[in-house]
Design a protein around this nucleic acid. Structure first.
Length: 242
DNA sequence: TGCTCGATTACCT
DNA sequence: GGTAATCGAGCAA
């Protein structure tokens, strides 16, 4: 399995992020291998980026971000989800690319079991219940938490080297799937990042145009900092504030 | 030691 | 389209 070289990640996260689109991230666990073609990523730029986990300096949680490039930074979010980043830049700069969504290209059965707990391989038996099989297939790795669940990624992979052969985690270049893809650069769109409350204006989210596996953009409900917490009167509306 | 809130998702209306 | 779920990091006292 061909891997991206470590030098690939030894650049600003905003340069690495678009180049990761179309590459294939895989996790080879005892349960089996699941691989996903990346369709959506976000760049986080360390000390110059207030939205980055590493903005306030090194802690036990984000220590991997401060290390050398090409390693996985995995963190636990909202008490139930894992999110995975790939570290960029030399040690000390603490930049990373968040993997937001992908299309499962290998190990779909295992991914389906992890996501939905379905014993059937073809999915036809349970297609009538809840979402259709088509939508479930698209949602397998659509979103950072879903992608980690589908690939079986958790905190045990924090610090895993994605550039070393023989490890459980790896990322392969575009043309490892189809040689022709190496020539034609994919159509990449950019826009604001999702789910953050700081530096919202920076267009450091990158995704593939015309790909249904890109996560749905949901605008963040503005968290209005209550100027007067003395009253416990239920907040009025608040959907818009001048 | 005790909060608050998050690089989210599933489910309900 | 709104909100509950759920836990640990980070900050204040």
């Amino acid at each position: 399995m061909e891997l991206l070289p470590r030098e690939f990640f030894d650049r600003p996260a905003t340069d690495v992020a678009p180049d990761l689109l179309g590459c294939v991230l895989w996790h080879d666990s005892p349960a089996g291998l699941v691989a996903a073609r990346l369709v959506e990523v976000e760049a986080y730029r360390g000390s110059i980026d207030p939205a980055s986990h590493s903005y306030r300096g090194e802690t036990a949680r984000n220590a991997v971000m401060f290390g050398p490039p090409g390693f996985a930074y995995v963190y636990f979010s909202y008490g139930m989800h894992y999110c995975m980043n790939l570290v960029c830049q030399p040690a000390g700069l603490a930049e990373a690319v968040l993997i937001r969504a992908g299309a499962v290209v290998d190990g779909a059965d295992l991914a389906r079991r992890r996501r939905y707990g379905l014993p059937d391989a073809d999915g036809s038996a349970t297609a009538s219940a809840g979402k259709g099989a088509r939508q479930r297939e698209r949602d397998l790795a659509r979103g950072p938490g879903r992608l980690c669940q589908a690939l079986g990624i958790d905190r045990s992979l924090d610090g895993a080297d994605a550039c070393a052969s023989g490890g459980p985690l790896g990322i392969s270049p575009r043309h490892s799937l189809h040689r022709a893809d190496a020539d034609a650069a994919p159509a990449v769109l950019t826009g604001p990042r999702v789910g953050i409350s700081k530096a919202v204006d920076r267009p450091w989210r990158f995704w593939l145009a015309d790909d249904g596996h890109v996560s749905a953009y949901k605008s963040l409900k503005p968290r209005v900092p209550a100027p007067k917490p003395v009253s416990d009167r239920p907040a009025e509306g608040g959907t818009m504030s001048g």
